[in-house]
Amino acid sequence: MQPIYLTGHSRPVRKVMFNFDGDMLFTCSDDGKVCMYNSYDQSRVGVFNVNQAVKSIDVSKDTKYLLASSTTEGYQIFDCMTGQLISKIAIPRSSIQVKHVEFALGDQQFLVVYEHAKRSYIRIQDTASALKGQTNPDGVFEVEGPQDHLITQASWGPLNQTLYIATNKGKFYIHDLSSSKTIVEEDVHNSEIFSFNVTYDHTMLITCSKDGTAKLLHPRSLEVVRLFNFVKPCRAACISPLFDSQENQKFHVLLAGGQDARDVTTSKASEGGFEIKLMNIIYNQSLAEILGHFGTVHTLAISPDGINFVSGSEDGYVHFHKFLPEYFTKKFE
């Protein structure tokens, strides 16, 4: 079915996400805006102006606060209902690059991944202190990233006790917060891990990398369980939340990516690899390819009910897809 094109952005879309209930869709872009959509009728509800390229966003579980990164400054917190800027926090270091932000389960804390002088840092702050604004740096502590590696994404582990950390040289760490030590360390990919996706119950972890593969890892031991071949650099992966559904249980994953933006003009259209692939996790079978984007797909999100999915791309468009009724039949098991 033809997707709905959401044209809220004028620059590459960096992240799309649904809120916890699935009724709101947030997208962010390099053009310095965060758009909020109603995910039922796809109407734009609000725009948050950051005035800086936004590489990453996150929404608190009760959809009260929006945390947005402001690439060269720090991060900002907005009120979702009114759209007001609550606090604007600059990281007290020069020439930084904020890469990733994420709320912990329960919204008590959040983490910010940033880069400074070729080292990566993970800054963890209490939400309460952040809401007070720049003045009070209470409850802030930083985790220094490994040497020679740059962190591309970090996420909270089970019960917020650990951190999953992926780097640009294919390494994957599990960092224990209480002892502040690395528990598990594994060379998963040959080249940069662009992103990874964990299910809410921490049973499945998928990494995707520049080397053209996506890997399903054991989230405790980081053992490779399945290897998905995407051929072109894989930038985003998203596990369908239907894996624990009672009626139609599906172990499916969406993979997207494609060649680098700079190669697009020098190669054939068919070499792009901008198709979104739907794969079965268990049998490692390709089920469908969804066409539409004409630029690298940076981000994917599936709605919590597993009926819709959204993709954001280098071309500035956000595509809102609905799975066809056929998808919920036996054919797509």
């Binding site: 389960l105 089970p158 019960l159 917020n160 809410y200 119950d201 921490h202 499945m204 405790r220």
Partner: peptide, 30 residues
Amino acid sequence: IRDEFLSKFFMPLRKEFEEQIDKYEQLWPI
């Protein structure tokens, strides 16, 4: 293949999660 995947990989992890579900729910009602 499915049985192997479920029994060796998915179900043990899921069980772990379900045992700890109270702790999760303290943080956020999932």
